[in-house]
Design a protein around this nucleic acid. Structure first.
Lengths: 223, 223
DNA sequence: ATTACTATTCTACGAGTAT
DNA sequence: TATACTCGTAGAATAGTAA
């Protein structure tokens, strides 16, 4: 459809021509479109020929209605815009400060009961160790809590002779906009709720040259 | 804004240029717009001058982003369309079968405690009598229940020496697409929930030539 | 009053091509 | 390859009017 038709259709929609015939003359219509009376007159005839409106000419002007086709064209435009503007965010970003844990990360990651699932569900063989991040801002903590409510990727817990190992929820993630990995939300952790752990197939500390106190950005994909 | 700009902005939105710079060359852009490479090139420069996009020319093409101004222009369009297409229905239609009641309708309508309010709130002097309608389809009964949850126009109850008279909720209505009146939802009625009553300044039975068993359509306005 | 025809102006497009 | 300039032309807008 010619792009100048859209403007005219939207003006008519604004006047309510999708519900009932709208009384309008070519001078007014021209003003609304920012064109001359002659052009407004021609525009109406163009829309008419395109089957987008119907009208009845009276002595005072014309009663113009959008046809179903006209309304549907606008609805299509609406739905397209809706898709963009009402889109649920597909990722969120957490920022946290690197710190050294007690080294249990590598122990857990290497447990076959977890490791097999990491490989199959995340698509990479995790490096033996986790990067601990402490969230510094309250908005990051809030976002972390939000993640707890999302489905994510659930790594099932298991048990051996000694003890049981809890479920781990994880999300695919991009670390510092460069390295792919995953964010782990470990249910039973001795850390507070301001701590998250990150894994990757790489040694993140080495690859990113990180030391304690550095800030790392994790883009978390919500599936 | 020139109407041919809208089409271009929407194409860019579709490509995600509101989120991140989009790699595109003028040939592709032209194809998407249905214009030549030259026109696409010119269009980009026009949008640039209008402050609707930013870009960076590379050897492979250009990385185009919508500016805030560009996104906001589209969002405004979106909100306008949303207003129209997500509009809550302003009326609903009930269909019911005419039947003869026990004649108490005219007694109630004529009670000054009600009548004064009908006149002031509905804008007409009601004919002394109500038209009783029995809803036949379950969808009509559902719609009637929906009406009970809507605010409507509340006619306050009152009491005299003998007894109390309950509240009456009513809605302006159009009967058989021709006569204005009101639908009454009477709280304490000996009829079931499949019955509604309709009043008007006219004698509806006479004016519409109705007899028992006829079907009447009531377009109920939800305020 | 209107709408809309005709003649004219103007602007937007695309072909050719420079960069 | 890209982008974007020049320029001839198609067609869109307007002024002047007719109906």
């Amino acid at each position: 459809m010619k792009s100048r038709f859209w403007q005219a259709l939207i003006v008519l929609l604004r006047l309510g021509a999708h519900k009932k015939p709208v009384e309008i003359n070519t001078v007014k219509f021209g003003k609304l479109l920012g064109v001359s009376q002659q052009t407004a007159s021609r525009r109406i005839r163009e829309l008419l020929n395109a089957g987008l409106i119907t009208r009845e000419v009276t002595r005072k002007g014309q009663a113009v209605s959008l046809t179903n086709e006209g309304v549907e064209a606008l609805r299509e435009l609406y739905l397209e815009l809706k898709n963009v503007f009402e889109e649920v965010p597909k990722f969120l970003t957490l920022r946290g400060e690197v710190f050294t844990g007690i080294g249990e990360g590598s122990y857990y990651v290497d447990l076959p009961g977890y490791k097999k699932q990491f490989i199959s569900r995340l698509g990479f063989i995790p490096y033996s160790g986790t990067l601990n991040l402490r969230l510094k801002s309250s908005i990051d903590v809030l976002n972390r809590k939000l993640l707890e409510k999302m489905p994510g990727i659930l790594i099932k817990g298991f048990f051996d002779e000694k003890r049981t190992y809890g479920d781990v929820k994880c999300f695919k993630a991009l670390i510092n906009d460069s390295i792919e990995g995953a964010l782990l939300l470990i249910k039973r952790t001795h850390y507070g709720e301001d701590v998250v752990e990150v894994i990757s197939k790489e040694n993140l500390r080495q690859k990113l040259g990180l030391k304690d106190g550095d800030i790392v950005e994790v883009k978390v994909f919500l599936e």
